[in-house]
């Protein structure tokens, strides 16, 4: 498992961990049932606060990507297609937001954008 922490930029560290683990689960790099490093172990390996890692894991668990068994650690949860769809939708939304902001920045209108997108599908 790769986790790369960047200390610059705006994204909080717990979010970086959350996103990277989530993406690796979604892209099947981490498969169902695979054990994750312990919260404490991961924090110490990355030399970051235990609280940070704990928060990332809690977030992952709440979203259903991992499950934690007391005394045994955390594992990648069984794939939930609904969940994946939702996660992807969220991603798409985020990208679209970015596109929209970029377009607004150079004065493109919504219509033009839609045209561009329609062309993309035909290619």
């Amino acid at each position: 498992m790769d986790i790369i922490i960047s200390n610059t930029g705006d994204q909080p560290i717990y979010e970086q961990i959350y996103t990277q683990i989530r993406d690796q689960i979604l892209s099947d790099k981490l498969s169902e049932g695979e054990p994750l490093p312990s919260i404490r172990g991961l924090a110490k390996d990355l030399r970051i606060s235990v609280i940070t890692t704990k928060r990332a894991y809690e977030e992952l668990e709440r979203e259903g990507f991992i499950c934690t068994m007391a005394g045994k650690g955390s594992f990648v949860a069984p794939k939930n297609t609904e969940l994946i769809r939702e996660a992807n939708l969220k991603k798409i939304e985020a990208h679209m937001q970015e596109i929209y902001e970029l377009a607004a920045g150079c004065g493109m209108e919504k219509k033009e954008l839609l045209e561009m997108f329609a062309l993309m599908g035909e290619e």
């Binding site: 705006d10 909080p12 717990y14 606060s49």
Partner: peptide, 11 residues
């Protein structure tokens, strides 16, 4: 304070 909270609260 938790270090993370500080980082989150201030920018």
């Amino acid at each position: 304070e938790e270090k993370d909270l500080l980082l989150e609260r201030y920018g």
